[in-house]
C-alpha cells in the first residue's frame, strides 16, 4: 500500500516540471505587463534559492554568491519583458542570465578591462530590434518593395512596426509612447510580420 502511494507521488512529480514552467511563464508575463509583485514573489521564492545554490558552487563564496543572486533576480524583475516563451523555459532564461552575470563578475575580478562582455556573447538581456531569423527582409526584397508592402499594412500595425524597425524603439518604449499594453504591441508586431511574410511569399 505504501509502495503504491510512493509510486503515485513519483508520477505526479514527473509531470510537475511542465506545470511549473507554465506557471512561471505566466508570472513573468504578469511582471512584464503589470509589475505584479505577487507574481514576482512566486518567481523569486522558486528561483532565488536555486540560483543561490548554483552561485555557491560557481563562486565558492557566500557574499559573492548572494551578489550573483541579487543581480540575476533584479534583471528578472526589471527586464521580464525580454522573456520569450517560444525560445525556451523560464528556468533556461534565468539560468542564462545567471551564467552571463557570473561571466562578467569573473572578468571584473580578474581586473580585465571589460572588453569582452556577456552581452556580446549571449544577447539574453538585449532588446530585440529585428528578430533574427524571423524575416531576412533586407536580403530578399528591395527597399521599394518593402515600402509598398508596408503601406498596405493596417494603420495600427504600421505604427508599431515603424516605431520598432524604423525608429529602433524597444517594444516597451512603444507601449509607453502609444499608451497601450506591452502585450498588444507584441501581438501587433507578430501579426504585422506574419502579414508581411504572407505578402512576400505571394510576390514570389
Amino acid at each position: 500500500m505504501l509502495v503504491g502511494i510512493q509510486l503515485d507521488n513519483r508520477q505526479s512529480q514527473g509531470t510537475a516540471p511542465i506545470d511549473v514552467a507554465d506557471e512561471m511563464s505566466l508570472c513573468l508575463q504578469e511582471v512584464a505587463l503589470q509589475r505584479c509583485q505577487a507574481s514576482f514573489a512566486r518567481l523569486f521564492n522558486y528561483f532565488a534559492p536555486r540560483v543561490r545554490s548554483y552561485a555557491l558552487k560557481q563562486m565558492g563564496n557566500e557574499a559573492v554568491a548572494m551578489e550573483l543572486v541579487q543581480e540575476t533576480l533584479t534583471n528578472v524583475w526589471q527586464k521580464a519583458h525580454l522573456f520569450d516563451a517560444e525560445k525556451g523555459s523560464p528556468s533556461t532564461w534565468i539560468f542564462t542570465i545567471a551564467r552571463n552575470i557570473r561571466f562578467d563578475m569573473l572578468r571584473k575580478q580578474q581586473n580585465r578591462k571589460e572588453d569582452i562582455c556577456a552581452d556580446d556573447l549571449w544577447p539574453v538581456l538585449c532588446e530585440q530590434t529585428a528578430a533574427p531569423g524571423e524575416l531576412g527582409l533586407d536580403q530578399q526584397v528591395t527597399l521599394d518593395q518593402v515600402g509598398q508592402l508596408f503601406e498596405a499594412l493596417p494603420d495600427k500595425q504600421r505604427q508599431v512596426i515603424e516605431a520598432i524597425y524604423v525608429q529602433g524603439k524597444s517594444q516597451q518604449e512603444v507601449a509607453e509612447s502609444l499608451g497601450i499594453p506591452l502585450g498588444t504591441v507584441k501581438s501587433r508586431t507578430r501579426l504585422a510580420l506574419q502579414r508581411l511574410k504572407e505578402m512576400l511569399s505571394e510576390d514570389d
Partner: peptide, 18 residues
C-alpha cells in the same frame, strides 16, 4: 533572501541593452 526580494521590487522596470 526575504530582504533581497523587497529591495528588488522597489526598483523600476528597465529596458534591455541596445
Amino acid at each position: 533572501l526575504q530582504k533581497m526580494l523587497d529591495s528588488i521590487m522597489a526598483l523600476p522596470a528597465q529596458t534591455g541593452v541596445k
